[in-house]
């Protein structure tokens, strides 16, 4: 239990620092940035106190917002994916989730990929809709969400493979 708190605390700080110091400055092709910090929400333990989890997700989003002067867009997107995470888990992992035995490192690649993809795409669509905040620029919103999602998904999968402690 104590171990889980330490791991998630370190993950929170490392992901925020990584995001604001390096990843926000990539600007691939001018506007494409990965948002790797959602890995904190993706990898948060399944058996959790839901209220605390939603609040922590809000906190990580708000921290990113503070660093990037973006109002509350990251907080809104993060808190939404945290709230709908059980539904996504249920649809991608199925029975494994019902028995509360999901281990991301040992689960098969397809379920992991669809879980991360759905989470990232929902997060990015909300993020960019609020950031652009203009319904007449819907093409720009979709374009930004699509390309950034691809970047985020690839980076999330790579990070999970590199740091998985599967022997």
């Amino acid at each position: 239990m104590n171990n889980s708190i330490t791991i998630n605390g370190i993950r929170f700080i490392v992901l925020v620092l990584l995001q604001v110091v390096i990843l926000n400055k990539i600007n691939f092709l001018g506007y494409i940035n990965p948002y790797l910090y959602i890995l904190f929400i993706i990898l948060y333990p399944i058996k959790n106190n839901r209220t605390l989890f939603i609040f922590l997700s809000f906190l990580i989003g708000l921290t990113i917002d503070m660093f990037s002067d973006s109002g509350g867009v990251h907080a809104a997107a993060s808190v939404t994916i945290a709230f709908i995470r059980p539904a996504i888990l249920k649809s991608t992992f199925g029975a494994m989730y019902d028995h509360q035995t999901v281990k991301f490192a040992s689960a098969d690649f397809a379920s992991n990929l669809s879980y991360i993809s759905i989470t990232a795409i929902i997060h990015h669509v909300i993020l960019f809709s609020l950031e652009v905040f203009n319904i007449s620029k819907v093409i720009l919103i979709l374009q930004k969400s699509l390309f950034s999602s691809i970047f985020t998904i690839i980076l999330c999968i790579l990070t999970m493979i590199i740091f998985s402690n599967r022997k």
Binding site: F58, G72, A75, V79, A82, F83
Partner: peptide, 18 residues
């Protein structure tokens, strides 16, 4: 309810930043 509260709070911050 917590989700709704936090979501509205962040939307409020967003509108304020615009």
């Amino acid at each position: 309810l917590l989700f709704l509260l936090l979501f509205l709070l962040s939307v409020f911050f967003t509108i304020q930043s615009h």
